[in-house]
Simulated assay, not measured.
Amino acid sequence: MLQNGKEDQKIAFSAGLLASGSGHTGPADSDKTLAYKKVFSNIGNAYDPETGIFTAPLRGVYYFRFYAHSQAGIKMAVSLYKNNQLQCSVFSWQSTINGNASNGVVLTLEPGDVVYTKLWGNSRVFDDEASYTSFSGFLIFPLQMK
């Protein structure tokens, strides 16, 4: 992928919210970064399951997507951030049935840029072994340094 004699960089991760079991995360008094503990893949080790933060190791164009599950009667809201800047969100206001919401975005990142999701204050998400609530991302292609 990379030219000029540099080693190819392969970067991709996918993770479910809970490592095991089932239950709700939230509500919290304020927005809370979600740490997705059930790591399916973490090629390049750019995703940290302890913090829930992806840190770009190289300049490039990346794709991120996240899913969130809400149960009946519960408000669910999750947003994706790049360097503390809101990029996109999902929201469900106390639906009468269980539901899923997803969103995705293509971002240009510089080395050290961070991407993560936050659960809104006073909302909850649900997860179980089926990993209804998840977060993934991958490098589409690298860009030459400026």
Rank of each mutant, 00 (worst) to 15 (best):
W120R: 02
G137E: 01
V61I: 15
G121T: 03
F91S: 13
G73Q: 07
A56L: 08
G5I: 07
G99E: 05
N83I: 08
S131L: 01
A77E: 11
I11D: 04
L119E: 02
K37W: 03
N103M: 03
I140S: 01
L119F: 00
G5P: 02
T51N: 12
G112F: 03
L58Q: 07
F13V: 05
N4V: 13
S20A: 14
Y36N: 07
Q144V: 12
Q9M: 14
G137H: 00
G112M: 04
H24Q: 12
L107K: 01
G121L: 03
G26W: 00
L2R: 15
V39R: 02
A46I: 08
K6C: 12
A72C: 09
L107W: 01
Y63S: 15
S14R: 09
A130D: 10
G52E: 09
F13P: 00
Q85P: 11
G26C: 05
N83S: 08
V106C: 10
L34I: 14
S41P: 07
L34C: 13
E129M: 07
M1V: 11
A72P: 06
W93F: 15
E50M: 15
Q71K: 14
L139F: 05
F126L: 09
A101P: 04
G23T: 08
L139R: 00
G121D: 05
L143M: 07
